[in-house]
């Protein structure tokens, strides 16, 4: 009779080397009705009690070891086969993905207004809007731009026939409307569409957008304005963006300044198609609200001071994405729009 230990070793080796087809026959060979171990157990009666006990327990032991090993082997074979099956179902990821709708897009100009609004909201500003068809008073007179002033010629105005009305040339009327509605303190931005009767070219179009800003309170200073705008630029374009303030002139602010931002494409190194190698790009005009403007809305200019600013949205957007023609914004060609 073979040594049970030897039988076990032999059986375990066979199980290890088996595959799905041979595993069952191995099981039969050792554990089946005529299996080697079964035979041993059957022949126990011919042994002495001592041997019966010893061989019986050895054989049973061997049996359970082999059963467990077969069970393990079965599991791992099953796992292997399932993995094989999945491997065969492999998809070509490079072509199969699909979403039924094509990619939608937001208009870059609207998105820029949203971004600007979000920044100013985070700095404590509320948002107001105003009409696009305006009166001479709101668009000019109240802003200290009398008819006699040459500044009027700078803003080629569209007039509406048969009415004493015009299309607003800037969002600054929003300042006046906001101040008429609210007593100071006031802190508001006014985004919107504006119109100028200009020949269109890569940098000019009859329609564009501005965001106007205004704050009036008892202790507002020019330094507050400069701090606000530098915060704004840093929040929108990153804190490594340099800006500079240049004295300028607007009828409705005094002192006035223009803000230039360092070109984000050439980082001031020059030779750049966007900033025309000047390395600075003018992004907004601002200043301290002119006392005549405060007077127009019956604010006490001895008690209150304020600042105002206005920025051109298209310009900033063109600058942000490297767009070189403003008219692209209004053509609405999907080949353009879907890029954003």
């Amino acid at each position: 009779m073979k040594d049970i230990r030897q039988i076990t070793t032999e059986a375990l080796k066979k199980v290890k080397d088996s595959d799905a087809l041979t595993l069952e026959s191995i099981k039969a060979e050792y554990l089946g009705k005529d299996g080697v171990l079964t035979q041993i157990l059957k022949s126990l009666s011919s042994y002495s009690i001592e041997d019966k006990k010893r061989i019986g327990s050895e054989a049973n032991n061997a049996k359970s070891i082999i059963v467990a090993e077969i069970k393990n082997k079965k599991e791992s074979l099953k796992k292997f086969l399932f993995n094989e099956k999945m491997r065969n179902e492999k998809f070509d990821y490079s072509e199969s993905f699909y979403f039924p709708f094509s990619k939608g897009s937001f208009h870059p100009v609207i998105q820029m207004i949203n971004d600007i609004t979000a920044v100013f909201k985070s700095l404590g500003f509320s948002v107001a809007e105003g009409p696009e068809v305006e009166t001479d008073w709101y668009n000019f007179e109240a802003l200290n731009i009398p008819d006699s002033h040459p500044a009027r010629d700078m803003q080629n105005t569209f007039y509406v026939e048969g009415m004493k009305a015009l299309l607003r040339t800037h969002t600054s009327p929003g300042q006046i409307r906001a101040m008429e509605k609210h007593k100071p303190p006031i802190k508001v931005i006014v985004p919107g569409k504006v119109y100028r009767n200009e020949a269109s070219d890569a940098m000019h179009f009859s329609t564009f957008h501005q965001v106007e800003g205004l704050a009036v309170d008892e202790n507002i200073t020019f330094v507050d304005l400069m701090t606000l705008l530098s915060d704004f630029v840093h929040k929108l374009f990153g804190s490594d963006t340099n800006i500079r303030f240049r004295p300028s002139h607007f009828q409705f602010t005094e002192p006035s300044a223009e803000v230039d931002m360092q070109c984000i494409f050439c980082k001031g190194k020059g030779r750049c198609r966007l900033c025309k190698s000047s390395s600075w790009i003018e992004i907004l005009g601002c200043g301290m609200v002119h006392p005549n403007v405060l007077k127009a809305v019956h604010y006490d200019s001895r008690k209150y001071t304020g600042y105002a600013f206005g920025l051109g949205v298209e310009r900033l957007t063109m600058f942000k994405y490297g767009i070189d023609d403003i008219r692209l914004f209004y053509e609405n060609d999907l080949r353009f729009l879907k890029q954003f």
């Binding site: 709708f101 094509s102 990619k103 939608g104 897009s105 937001f106 208009h107 100009v109 609207i110 696009e132 569409k193 119109y195 179009f205 009859s206 329609t207 914004f329 209004y330 609405n332 999907l334 729009l337 879907k338």
Partner: peptide, 16 residues
């Protein structure tokens, strides 16, 4: 806007 963008719409901007 947000929902329509998800449905594949593109936002346009026209002059008035």
């Amino acid at each position: 806007r947000t929902k329509l963008k998800g449905f594949g719409f593109s936002e346009v901007l026209n002059c008035s």
